[in-house]
Design a protein around this nucleic acid. Structure first.
Lengths: 341, 341
DNA sequence: TCGCAAATTGACAGCGCTGTCATTTTCCTC
DNA sequence: GAGGAAAATGACAGCGCTGTCAATTTGCGA
C-alpha cells in the first residue's frame, strides 16, 4: 500500500496537519519537529498524492506552456528549460499547441484553463504578443510569464538583447579585418529582423564604416532567399568580403551561393548567421552564429512564474546573455584580395 | 462558483452517481436519462474537476511521453499526435526527457511513475528498445505503447515498414532509368540502417540489377559522413548516376560533394534521402525523401494505449504507410552520360 | 514565579468525485 | 398476472490532503 501523509505523521509522532505544514514549507514549525518529519518522509519514501493536494488546496501544481511556433528545435529547448524549473519546485508541466491567428484562440485558452486549471502559464512567441490574451488571463486570475515578448515593459519573463548580439556579430567580422560587410535582412514582419539590422548599423557606425545600401538586401529568413540575396551580392563589382545573414537558414543559402560562384568559405568570403539552429552545424563549413540560451530562457521564465504563483515575489523581466558561436564559416580578411579596390 | 457534479444531478433530477455514470460513459443508464444528464451538463457548461476524479477513482487521466531523442522535429510531431489522441478522450499529457543510457534511468522512470502516477506511457525511440524497462513497467502495472520499436512482436504501438519504403525509394530511381545506384548506409548501431540497406537490396534484386559492393558505403547519419562517402563514389571510374542516402543529412552531404565535383543535381546525378527532416527542404535542390507520418504515428500509439488503459481492448501494433516525397534532387538518367561505359 | 501574547500543534470537516452495495424498476417467462 | 432475473438508479462512505479554528506550549517581562 502507498505511504500516506497520515503514515508519516504517525511515524514522526505528530499530527497530519504538521506533516502537511512541513510538506508545504510553511512557517511556524519548530526546527526539531520539522527535522523529525523530514526524516520520517525520507525513511518511508513518502510521495504526496498530487490529486489530493490539488483537491484540498484548490491549486493544481500545474504549469501550462502555450506555443504556436514552427521551430521545433527552439520549442524543445524552451520546453526542457521550463521542465527543469517545474521539477525543482515539484510542479508538473503540460504543453499546448495553439493557433494564435485562429478565431477561437481565446476560447481555446479559456477551455484549457477551465479544464486543467493550471496555476500559471508560460507564453512563447508569437503568443506572447497576442493583443487580447493578457486581458483574458488577468480576468481569469491566471498568472503568466513570457519568453521574448516584443513589449518588455511591465511584463514578467525573459528576453535577449538581439540588437546588441547582432552588433557583436558584426564587430567580430570587423575585428577579422573585414570592411565591406553585407547584411541579409530577415522577413520584414518579424521584430527580430529590425533588431538585427539595427545591430548591424550600430557596429558599422561605431567602427566608422559607411552604411552602404547596396550591401543590405532583403531576405525572408528562408534558404532560398539567402541564395538569391547572395547571388546579387557576389555579382557586385566590389563584392563584400563578409556577409551577416539575419538567420542561419539564409546564411546556409549564402554559403551555397558562394560555392556556385567559385568562392571558398571562409577563405574568400566570411559568412555568419543568427539563432544557432541545427543547420548551422549540419552543413560545411559550420556557420558562425549567435546562440540564444533557449533552455536557460525557458527555465528563467518558469522560475519567474513560479515566484509569482507561490507568492514569493512580483516576478520581473530577465535579460539573458547571448553567445557568439565561432565556427568555420568566418575567417580573416582574404590577403590576396584586399577590399581596397 | 464552479459548477459541480452535484449541481448537474439536481438540474437533471437524478442522483450524483448517475451523472458520474454518464460522465464516464458507463453502461446501465437508460437512453432518456443519459440525454437529460448530457443536456444539463451542456446547459451548465459543466467541467469535471480532474483532481477530484483522480482522487476518487485512483486514475490520473494522465499519459506521460518519454523521450531521449535529439531530433526535435520528430519529437514535436509525435508529441502533437499524442496530444490529439489525449484530447479526444479528455486525458492530459506530460512529456519527460530522459537519458536512456544513464545509470539511473530506471530509477528516474520509477520516480516519474510514483510521483505523477500516469495511467500509461508512450515510449519513443530509443527508449522503446531499453532492455530492462518493460519488466519495470509490467511490475508497476503501467501500460505503455511504443513508437517504432525494434521488436514488434507482442508490442503495442505503431511502426512503419522502413524496408519497403527504402525499396520503393530505389524503385523510383530505377523507374527514372538509373542502373548504377549507390547507397550510403546509416550508423551501424541503428536498426534503421539495416532495414534501409535491406530495402535497397530488395529493389535491385527485383529489378535484376547486380548488387555492387563498391557502390555501398558506410556512413553514420551525419552530413560529414555523407560528404566523405560521396567523395569516394564520385571518384570511381564508373560513378553512380544516383545515390540513395539512408537519411536526409547524408543526402545533403552528398549534394554538397556533388557541387564540389562539378556535378549538377539532378542533371548529372540524382540524390535521395530518408526521413523528410527540414534540411531536405532547406537546401537546394530540395531532397526527394521518405516521409514518416510522425504525427499520425503519435496519435495511433496514444490511441492504442488509451484503448488498453480504458479497458477497451488489448491494443496492437499498427503499421502506418510511408510516403515518397518527390522533390528536385532526383531526375531522369542523364542522356549525355549513359551508364553503359 | 506568574500572566499574557505569540508561536506551535492538533481536531475536524470537507474539497468533488467514484466504488460498493443496497434498492428500485423493468423485462421476461410461464 | 405472478415470480424472478437483470437492468437501472441511488445512498453513503471515503479517496489523501489542506483550511479553519481551537487547544496547547513556549517565551518573556514584571
Amino acid at each position: 500500500m502507498r505511504v500516506r501523509l497520515e503514515d508519516v505523521a504517525r511515524a514522526a509522532g505528530v499530527s497530519p496537519k504538521t506533516v502537511s505544514r512541513v510538506l508545504n514549507d510553511e512557517a511556524n514549525v519548530r526546527g526539531p519537529t520539522r527535522e523529525r518529519v523530514l526524516a520520517a518522509m525520507a525513511a518511508m519514501d513518502y510521495r504526496p498524492h498530487p490529486s489530493a493536494r490539488s483537491l484540498a488546496s484548490n491549486r493544481s501544481f500545474l504549469v501550462a506552456m502555450l506555443y504556436d511556433n514552427p521551430s521545433s528545435n527552439y520549442l524543445t529547448e524552451i520546453q526542457a528549460g521550463v521542465l527543469d524549473a517545474c521539477d525543482l519546485h515539484h510542479y508538473s508541466m503540460m504543453v499546448r499547441p495553439l493557433l494564435s491567428e485562429a478565431e477561437d484562440f481565446l476560447e481555446r485558452v479559456g477551455t484549457l484553463i477551465s479544464h486543467h486549471r493550471p496555476d500559471g502559464l508560460i507564453l512563447t512567441p508569437p503568443i506572447t504578443d497576442h493583443p487580447a490574451l493578457p486581458a483574458l488571463l488577468r480576468e481569469q486570475g491566471v498568472p503568466y510569464a513570457s519568453v521574448s515578448p516584443k513589449q518588455r515593459d511591465g511584463a514578467i519573463g525573459v528576453g535577449m538583447d538581439e540588437r546588441l548580439a547582432a552588433r557583436e556579430m558584426v564587430n567580430h567580422l570587423i575585428a577579422l579585418g573585414h570592411r565591406r560587410i553585407a547584411h541579409v535582412i530577415g522577413h520584414p514582419a518579424h521584430g527580430a529582423s529590425g533588431w538585427r539590422l539595427a545591430g548591424y548599423s550600430d557596429a558599422l557606425a561605431a567602427a566608422g564604416l559607411p552604411f552602404d545600401p547596396a550591401l543590405v538586401i532583403e531576405g525572408e529568413f528562408s534558404f532560398g532567399s539567402g541564395v538569391a540575396a547572395a547571388r546579387r551580392l557576389f555579382s557586385l563589382a566590389r563584392r563584400p568580403t563578409a556577409v551577416f545573414a539575419a538567420n542561419d537558414d539564409m546564411a546556409a543559402g549564402v554559403i551555397w551561393a558562394a560555392g556556385e560562384h567559385g568562392l571558398s568559405v571562409p577563405r574568400d568570403v566570411s559568412v555568419c548567421g543568427f539563432d544557432d539552429t541545427p543547420i548551422s552545424r549540419q552543413i560545411w563549413p559550420a556557420i558562425t552564429t549567435i546562440r540564444q540560451p533557449s533552455r536557460e530562457m525557458g527555465r528563467i521564465a518558469a522560475l519567474q512564474l513560479l515566484d509569482v504563483m507561490r507568492g514569493r515575489g512580483q516576478g520581473r523581466m530577465v535579460e539573458v546573455p547571448f553567445a557568439l558561436q565561432l565556427r568555420e564559416s568566418t575567417g580573416p580578411l582574404p590577403t590576396a584580395a584586399p577590399e581596397a579596390g
